[in-house]
Design a protein around this nucleic acid. Structure first.
Lengths: 147, 147
DNA sequence: GTACATGCAAAGGCTTTGCTATCGA
DNA sequence: TCGATAGCAAAGCCTTTGCATGTAC
């Protein structure tokens, strides 16, 4: 079973288990989030669904994102300029590398973060709950462009 | 010479070298940023200066922050909820640990980040420009509180 | 004297909220 | 049927911008 299919099922189950109803709009949102290809923005999600549901409102996207986030099934990559991006496929903290030109976001795999977290917990006496690690740069495509 | 005094001089010099005028308001802002005790927010800076300059406007704080940031003398810790914090004392990327209750922000020292950055640059073919690493948790003070 | 800075208020952009009608279970 | 949900528009919040006045150099 494809990995995004599993995520789709997991999120739906969690929603149902918590007593939430299944609307066509919600289903469409979950479908996109389960895959989260390219780490979509709210605008991306809204635009894609609007093709099938012309009345689809931004508020509904926002409300569902808040809901699914509250169930710990969605990772929000918030940026101060408001260009937030979402990952419902890997809803746990993990590092990213972001192209500052084309805004592409790739996942990274860095095991060393976990031990880092333990060290810091001891040194600082904090109970660490989560983290956020982003690298910013220019991808090879954008580097190659004339300008 | 105290370390914040050096930062104060450096920022002032950079401003002058780039042809910017020195107003009392700007001086006050730079003074706070050079120290950046506790990683102040725009509101913090504005409130502190308003005691001496009752007419001090938020817009002036914002404009100066944008200016000093553009000179690479200020690190902005942006958060998606708009609670941005600033560090003009260590204006280069460095990791932080943040208490989600009292919003205290402490600096961390993790040398391993640099080698990490090199590895990632090779693996991903990105030109890495900078990064951002935050750990979120609860500090010992807040843990100790009844609730 | 002149270009740059400040202050104030208005405008912006994203997100949340209030309200009513609708729809899922 | 009944309570959750969608849609729409209005309200919020932080930040930026326009414009007139003031000021550093």
């Amino acid at each position: 079973m494809a990995d995004h299919q599993k995520r789709f099922d997991t999120i739906l189950r969690k929603l149902r288990d918590n007593g939430h109803k299944m609307t066509p709009q919600r289903l469409a949102i979950v479908k996109i989030l389960a895959r989260s290809e390219g780490h979509p923005s709210v605008e991306d999600i809204h635009a894609r669904i609007k093709k099938d549901f012309p009345t689809m409102s931004l508020a509904t996207v926002y409300r569902n994102i808040i809901l699914i986030k509250s169930l710990d099934e969605l990772l929000e990559l918030g940026f101060p300029d408001g260009s937030n991006r979402y990952d419902g496929n890997k809803p746990y903290p993990h590092p990213h590398i972001i192209c500052v030109k084309c805004k592409k976001i790739l996942d990274l795999d860095l095991d060393s973060l976990d031990e880092m977290q333990h060290e810091i917990a001891e040194e600082t006496d904090f109970k660490i709950l989560n983290h956020r690690l982003d690298f910013f740069g220019i991808c090879s495509n954008c580097s190659a462009e004339k300008d």
